[in-house]
C-alpha cells in the first residue's frame, strides 16, 4: 500500500513536471530544443526589421561563455535574452556587464535590455516566433518588450 502511494506520488510529480502542450512542444523541458534553437535566433518579419536583433544575437553568440541567445527589437528598443554555459554561471555578473557594454557600444541608438534568465529566454523566443507568424505593429511589439523588461526586473 505504502509503496503504491509513494510510486503514485513520484510518478505524478514527474508527469506534471514534464507535461507539454502541442503548440509549445518544441520548448519541452526534456528536449534539447528548449536550450538550443535551430533557427538563427531572430525573426524575419515583413513588418518589423529585425536586423539589429539578428546582429546582436550573432555578436553575442561569438562569446565563449554564451550557450545561446535570442533577441527582438523595435526602432529604438532591443531586448536580448541569453543562456550562460553551466560552469560559467559563476561569472554571471561579469558576463552580464560585458554583454551590456558590448551591445551598448554596438547599438547606441537603441535602448538595450538584456537578461540571462531562462524564463525570459523562453518568452523572447515565443515572441520572436509570434513575430514570424503574425504581423505585429511597432506599438504592440514595444509593449511586449516593455513587459519582458518588467519581468526581468522582478526580484521577489
Amino acid at each position: 500500500m505504502m509503496k503504491k502511494v509513494t510510486l503514485l506520488l513520484v510518478c505524478s510529480l514527474f508527469i506534471v513536471g514534464c507535461a507539454r502542450e502541442p503548440e509549445v512542444k518544441d520548448q519541452s523541458l526534456q528536449g534539447k530544443n528548449m536550450i538550443r534553437l535551430n533557427t538563427d535566433g531572430t525573426a524575419h518579419s515583413a513588418t518589423m526589421d529585425q536586423s539589429a536583433a539578428q546582429q546582436a544575437v550573432n555578436d553575442i553568440k561569438q562569446k565563449q561563455a554564451i550557450r545561446d541567445a535570442v533577441a527582438v527589437n523595435t526602432k529604438n528598443k532591443l531586448f536580448l535574452a541569453y543562456q550562460v554555459k553551466h560552469m560559467e554561471r559563476f561569472h554571471k555578473k561579469q558576463i552580464e556587464k560585458e554583454v551590456q557594454k558590448q551591445l551598448k557600444e554596438r547599438f547606441p541608438q537603441h535602448q538595450v535590455v538584456i537578461s540571462s534568465d531562462l524564463k525570459l529566454f523562453w518568452k523572447t523566443n515565443e515572441l520572436k516566433k509570434q513575430l514570424q507568424k503574425t504581423r505585429m505593429g511597432e506599438r504592440k511589439l514595444n509593449e511586449e518588450i516593455e513587459k519582458l523588461k518588467k519581468l526581468s526586473e522582478e526580484t521577489a
Binding site: 520548448q27 523541458l29 531562462l118 525570459l120 523562453w122 522582478e154
Partner: peptide, 18 residues
C-alpha cells in the same frame, strides 16, 4: 528543480522569483 521549472513554464515566474 522540476517544481521550479514547472512554475517558470506555466506561470509568470522567472528563475529568480520561482
Amino acid at each position: 528543480q522540476a517544481v521550479s521549472y514547472f512554475y517558470m513554464y506555466f506561470f509568470d515566474f522567472t528563475e529568480q522569483t520561482a
